[in-house]
């Protein structure tokens, strides 16, 4: 109970970001292997999206662990700051790698009449957009965590 009481916004925001990142990457995997993309031959899982997201999750968790173990004095607060910064950069990078991979599909399905009336195509692209939104929300939570402290008695 004491542990919970001592946590601050960054703790919850970071946890949320990690969970959202996990959901994002699952959605990404599901979306990439969506039947429409598979049958249209564009179901390639991007190593960049996966690696960037996983690294970001590890960094966010590392920040929490470090902040919990140390009081944030000295170099620690800088280390946690850098971890947060790099995590956000990786989430943003995963996001644009994902967008870059699917921008052509979105243009085909939503901005042309090539797939007009094809519900499977629309569903696949809407799922893609949902994935984008998840990544964007993940990024927002990660950024929010940078503005706050993990623990009441720490600046980390």
């Amino acid at each position: 109970m004491e542990f919970i009481k001592s946590q601050r916004v960054a703790f919850y925001a970071s946890i949320a970001a990690v969970i959202l990142a996990l959901v994002s990457i699952i959605i990404y995997g599901v979306n990439t292997t969506n039947n429409y993309y598979v049958t249209s031959g564009s179901a390639n899982i991007s190593a960049l999206v996966v690696v960037f997201t996983v690294i970001a999750m590890i960094l966010l968790i590392a920040r929490i662990v470090i902040a919990e173990k140390f009081d944030g004095a000295g170099l620690i607060k800088h280390v946690t700051s850098i971890l947060t910064l790099v995590a956000c950069v990786f989430i943003a990078s995963a996001f644009f790698a994902y967008v870059g991979e699917r921008v052509y599909d979105i243009a085909i399905v939503l901005a042309s009449d090539l797939e007009a009336g094809n519900v499977a195509a629309t569903d696949a692209v809407m799922q893609t957009i949902a994935g984008f939104v998840l990544y964007a929300v993940t990024l927002i939570f990660a950024i929010v965590s940078a503005f706050a402290r993990v623990r009441k008695d720490s600046v980390a």
Partner: peptide, 8 residues
């Protein structure tokens, strides 16, 4: 934390 957040 404010400046750190802005940097991020």
């Amino acid at each position: 934390p404010l400046w750190r957040g802005l940097v991020v």
